[in-house]
Design a protein around this nucleic acid. Structure first.
Lengths: 184, 184
DNA sequence: TTGATAACGAACAAAGTGTTTGATATTATC
DNA sequence: GATAATATCAAACACTTTGTTCGTTATCAA
């Protein structure tokens, strides 16, 4: 990818993120993004078809960045072991979110988090699928997964709203207590 | 309120609801609502300041209609007793949603349910507050409530997506099983 | 019946959208 | 370092949408 493209893409993402911290997605115009990013109109449209496509691309980038290579060896909270408990997994995920706070604040702050949350829930569902023992058998499977996903997503949203001041370990601990599984 | 106003308001709501069943809120224009409702442009703006205000008004109306007078004596699933168990309360709520399916399908179907869900969650939080025994004490209060609200909201969303085919009693039963409270 | 007022339609400025153009600047590659 | 490719830019464009205004008509409450 051309350096110029990368630079432009980054400028647009950062500008968009700054705007998202201030106002809702619906109320942001392409023109504002252009001004904030200092990018030409035609350039923007050569990168993204629409404003929705921009948000989607940004969410995808964030997910790739945060969750794709889950095993970082350079971070202080390292999980180089190949398989972890659900507790570890969740804690790890929360740490990643916290590490990338500045990059994701826009998409998930205020009232603009819906789309991000939609993607997030998809990711969570896939995550819980990897822990079959966390999924209760006495209710329909989808119901059980939805329960895990919904409550966890809500917890994360709240945690972010609180500026992530509660330690990830404690969030994970509270969450797992409420699901009724102590050692999964 | 003037009959003409009521008629116009209803026409706009219904048209908007029909459109919401087909496409996302963001992609619906005022012009489309005007055409669908067969209402003049200036008339629309004399009723609602913006499209957002329309959605908000519609959500409010729905909540008033469904939840304000919770004790219906004319419905088959009557709860005329003054206090009920959480299980009964939830079942009752689901029945109300089902009864008003045609009126609410638009706002809560597809991808358009975010705003409704936001209001819905506020309502749910207040509801759970009325059942102190449902709120666990071993985690921060807000955390516990969020857990109840998030998982229930997700369950309802899923249930609606399934065209409400699962009986309300069963939904309530599954939900309460997963929260760990059998007889609250 | 009559005064009040809601709805209408047409027209309007303003803002936003998405595309096209040709010139300019930057980049990868030879 | 020269060259070919291409990303960016600015300007202009047709188009849609928005929200307001105004004079007319239709409906309602009394």
């Amino acid at each position: 990818m051309d350096r110029r493209q990368q630079k432009t893409r980054r400028a647009i993402f950062q500008a968009f993120n700054r705007l998202l911290e201030k106002k809702h997605f619906n109320n942001i115009t392409v023109q504002e993004i252009l001004d904030e990013a200092d990018v030409g109109r035609s350039t923007f449209y050569s990168h993204f078809e629409t404003k929705d496509a921009l948000l989607k691309a940004m969410c995808t980038d964030i997910f790739d960045h945060i969750f794709s290579h889950e095993l970082h060896s350079e971070t202080s909270h390292d999980f180089s072991a190949s398989d972890h408990s659900l507790q570890e997994k969740i804690t790890h995920l929360l740490y990643h979110l916290k590490d990338n706070q500045s990059n994701v604040l826009g998409v998930l702050s205020g009232d603009s988090g819906e789309l991000f949350m939609r993607y997030f829930k998809e990711y969570l569902a896939a995550m819980f699928e990897q822990y079959p023992e966390s999924i209760r058998q006495d209710v329909p499977r989808e119901f059980a997964i939805n329960h895990l996903v919904g409550s966890f997503a809500e917890a994360v949203k709240w945690w972010i709203g609180q500026k992530m001041k509660m330690p990830p370990e404690e969030v994970a601990d509270c969450y797992l207590k409420l699901t009724g599984y102590q050692n999964v």
